[in-house]
Nucleic acid binder design. Structure first.
Lengths: 226, 226
DNA sequence: GTAAAATTAGACAGCATTGTCTAAATCGTC
DNA sequence: GACGATTTAGACAATGCTGTCTAATTTTAC
C-alpha cells in the first residue's frame, strides 16, 4: 500500500498535477487552433480547461511557453501515430491494389482527418515564420522522415511485387500526393470525409499510382484495336 | 484639357485617394499575412502603408471591413491570373511531355510561389472558420472552377493526344496533386523553389501522369524479359 | 490529523489596441 | 491664389490582455 518508497521525490503530487497539465494542454490546443496565438487568451484557455488562470502560469511560465508545450505534445503524438501507420505498409504483393488502398485510407485518416494533424498543419501555416526552428524540427522529423520511410517500404515491396520504380523517394512523394488529392481542400474546414469517400478516393489514387508504376502491361479495351 | 466634364461627380479626387487605397490594401495584406487577423494592428498597417491611421478608418470603417476588402481584392487577382494560365493549356499533342511540363511550371509559379496565392492559402487555414461564406465563395470560384476547367481542357486534348482517360475530373485533380507534390511543404515557408527545381519537379510529375494516362505502351527495358 | 504543496479567486499595474474626435496641414482643382 | 476635400498627428476613452501578487482554500502525502 505504501507508495512512498516507489515514488521518486519529484513525482509526489503528480497524479492531480498531471491531470491538470493534460487538461490545460488539451484546452490550449483547442483555443490556439481556433484563435491563433495572438487571438487566444489565457483566460479562455483556463475556462475551457476548468482551471484557474494562475494554475496555468504555475505550470507554464508564460503564454509562449505554453504554446511551445502544446506544439511539442501534439508533434509527439502525431509522429507516433504516423509511424505506427507506416508499420502497416503491405509486405507481400498478394492483393496489391486492395492492400495499398487500405493503407492509404489509414494514412489519410491519421494525417488529414485527425484533429492533431489538422492542428499542426494549421499552426505551420500561421506561426511557422515566427518559430522557424520548431517547425524545421517538425519538418525533418515528420514529413521528411515519412517520405524516406515510405520510400524504403516501396523499395522492399518492389522485391516481391510487380513494381517498376526508378526513384523510390519520388514514388513515395507522388503516392502521398495522389492519396491526398481529393481530401486536402475539404480538410481545411471542419468537413470530415465519410468512410466511403475515403475508400473511393484511396482506390482511385492507388489505381493511378499502379498504372504509372506497375510492371504489368496495361489491359485496356483498346488493345484489340492494335 | 478640362476633365470636369468627363469625370463623374464621385470620381473627383480619386487619383490620390486611389493611390492611398492601393497602398493601404497592399500593406494590410502584408501585415495580415504576417500576423494574422488578431495579431495585425492598424498602426502597423498605417506605418507600412505610409499613411495615417485615421486615413485607414476613413476608407474602411473598421478593421474587419479592411480585412474583407483585402481578401476580396486578392481573390480577384488570383482568380484572374489562374484563368489566364489555364488559357495556355496545350491544344495539340506535338510535344506532349514538354508542353504539359511547361504548363505545370506556369501553374506552380502562379499558385504556389505567388505571394497572393500563398496569402489566400494561409488565410483559409487561419480564418476560414471565422468567415465561412467568404471562403465558400473562394472555394467555388477558385479551386472548384479550376478543377472543372482543367478537366475540360484534358478532354479537349484527349481528342488529338494519345491519352486514355476515363474520368477527366479525376485526372485533373490528380494532375494538380502530382504537380504540387514536391513544392507544397517548402511553400509554407518563405523558401521559393528555384527555376530549375520547378522544371525538374514538373517533368517528374508529368512523366508519372503520362505513364498512368498515356495510351502508348510503356517502353521499359524489362520488356525484353517477357 | 497534520503539514506541505497545489489550487483558487480576485485585485492589480502595465501595456497595447481599437475606434473617435479635433485642429492643423496638405492636396487637387478651378 | 483660393476653396473644398482629404489627410495628418495626436490626444483620448474604453477595452482587453498579460503576468504578478496575495490570502484563502483545497488537495495530497504520510
Amino acid at each position: 500500500m505504501k507508495k512512498s518508497g516507489l515514488a521518486s521525490p519529484d513525482v509526489r503530487a503528480q497524479k492531480g498535477q498531471l491531470a491538470k497539465r493534460v487538461s490545460i494542454l488539451e484546452a490550449a490546443a483547442d483555443v490556439f487552433c481556433r484563435e491563433g496565438f495572438s487571438g487566444a487568451s489565457i483566460d479562455e484557455i483556463a475556462a475551457e480547461a476548468g482551471v484557474s488562470r494562475q494554475t496555468i502560469y504555475n505550470h507554464y511560465r508564460e503564454k509562449e511557453t505554453l504554446f511551445m508545450a502544446v506544439i511539442q505534445d501534439i508533434m509527439d503524438r502525431t509522429n507516433g501515430m504516423l509511424f505506427s501507420i507506416l508499420a502497416t505498409f503491405p509486405e507481400k504483393a498478394d492483393n496489391l491494389e486492395e492492400e495499398l488502398a487500405a493503407f492509404a485510407v489509414r494514412l489519410n485518416k491519421s494525417c488529414i482527418c485527425n484533429q492533431d494533424a489538422k492542428f499542426i498543419q494549421k499552426l505551420i501555416a500561421t506561426e511557422g515564420n515566427r518559430y522557424p526552428h520548431l517547425f524545421q524540427f517538425w519538418r525533418e522529423q515528420g514529413p521528411g522522415k515519412t517520405d524516406r520511410a515510405l520510400a524504403a517500404l516501396f523499395a522492399r515491396l518492389a522485391h516481391s511485387a510487380p513494381l517498376d520504380i526508378d526513384d523510390f523517394d519520388l514514388a513515395a512523394r507522388q503516392f502521398i500526393a495522389l492519396i491526398k488529392a481529393d481530401l486536402q481542400m475539404g480538410g481545411l474546414f471542419g468537413e470530415a470525409p465519410s468512410e466511403a469517400e475515403l475508400e473511393v478516393s484511396a482506390h482511385q489514387a492507388v489505381r493511378t499510382f499502379l498504372r504509372a508504376y506497375g510492371r504489368e502491361r496495361r489491359t485496356s479495351g483498346l488493345e484489340a484495336q492494335h
